[in-house]
Design a binder for these strands. Structure first.
Lengths: 239, 239
DNA sequence: GCCAGGCATTAACATTTGTTAGAGTGCACT
DNA sequence: AGTGCACTCTAACAAATGTTAATGCCTGGC
């Protein structure tokens, strides 16, 4: 059941059986969330961190004028709020973008891991660092890439991340996001989001229909995105 | 000499003398960088992490078309690349935006801290988590705030962060950024950056001259920015 | 099968933002 | 004092992006 977590953490460095057992031991109950439901509320102070077993979720903030911005997308194997373990107060919400099956890791047991299992602690820390690296890539995309390139970059990133946890199907993956939701990822209006998707389609590097993205020309897509996966730290080395 | 680091880490939870000694023990040599110099090169694999003792630095990425985007600003007391301790490879560069006095913490000694000092480890981890929280706030600002609001938010954030490490002077602080550099923070053209600064000045909430920002109306500035400092985790509590 | 509602798409127009170019300003260097 | 240079600021125009509104498509409920 925790396979995707092991795949996710294990991509950076080997996870021992003992460490897997420690992770499993930190887990408490599981739960399902329906599309659109809040998994974690902004302002809350959770005593557990949420692991996605299946489904797609997103962190978001809402502004006074009603505008919403997603700050990350979370796939199976991701802790959506591991940072809350130390940050304590959620400064943003987390919403299910598809039906989500999740499991909760108790903070007191995570704390015990930090006291007793330094290597596993470093891997968990690393997980949040990759999170930060993704944030930085998003900032660059929002600030300096063309919108088409930004979208292409997002597709590259999601494809690679989903591949790690075995949620891709050959060169395609399921992306259950409406264009309005996608617009809240890129920070665009819905209308313009539609234009940008159209542009990317027109180039012929992806097929995008029925919430399924199929990459037709990975090389050229990567070029358009200037995608360099270094930031995802997928190399396995001592940490 | 490490006062600002103690202030920075200590804002979240008490730092014991033993922990301060461990931090001091992790430090190796110090160095000065001139404005514009690279402190850490993109693609490098540093064996130490860099602490800013004095000065302003920034993380950045450069795209093929020459566009540059800053992904964070680093003030005294910040580790500019603590993440490289576990991420290993720098996926971005770090540049000095003013003369910088820095000190290097050896990764092997940081590793020893993670093996022997769990609480200090959590505080260092927390430091990188706040980093991530700031990234998220930047993403929201870039995606959904008006440019004026984005700039106002940046001013609020910098003021608060500089206050923690005692680099403010009443309601003003030194901001040695040219408008071109600021444009690389907000992801704008220089011309538009100039317009936005003008707009913020015109509202009368800040005085901005000679690289010194003076906040004339903190309340209204905060309102324009919709600034909520929760994300900086400045509350002192057990971590 | 019919209807309502959500979603994708397009058009027309408004606003924001970028580009190019140039003038003005202040400071370091000679 | 003069020169050069980096930086700020403005103007005029071009391009990107947002807004409003309308259309068509599809699906679930009846």
């Amino acid at each position: 059941m925790l396979e995707s977590l092991y795949l996710n953490l294990g991509q950076h460095d080997a996870l021992s059986d003992g460490e897997k057992a420690l992770l499993a031991g930190a887990m408490t109950f599981e739960r399902h969330f329906a599309t659109g439901q809040d998994i974690v509320a902004s302002g809350s102070r959770p005593t557990y961190s949420t692991l996605i077993l299946d489904g797609l979720a997103a962190r978001y903030k809402v502004l006074e004028n009603g505008g919403r911005q997603f700050t990350s997308l979370q796939v199976p194997g991701d802790f959506v709020d591991l940072h809350a373990f130390l940050l304590k107060t959620m400064d943003h919400g987390i919403v299910a973008l598809s039906p989500c099956h999740v499991m909760f890791a108790d903070h007191s047991r995570l704390r015990a891991i930090t006291e007793e299992a330094p290597h596993l602690t470093r891997l968990l820390w690393l997980d949040t660092l990759v999170d930060g690296a993704i944030h930085r890539e998003w900032i660059v995309a929002m600030g300096r890439r063309s919108k088409t390139s930004h979208l292409a970059h997002l597709v590259c990133e999601l494809f690679v991340r989903l591949q790690v946890v075995q949620r891709t199907n050959d060169m395609s993956f399921h992306l259950p996001l409406s264009q309005a939701e996608l617009a809240d990822v890129l920070g665009l209006s819905v209308v313009h989001m539609n234009r940008v998707i159209g542009a990317l389609r027109k180039v012929g590097v992806v097929n995008w229909a029925n919430h399924t993205v199929t990459i037709l020309d990975w090389h050229r897509l990567q070029e358009i995105a200037e995608f360099d996966p270094t930031y995802l730290s997928m190399m396995r080395e001592p940490r």
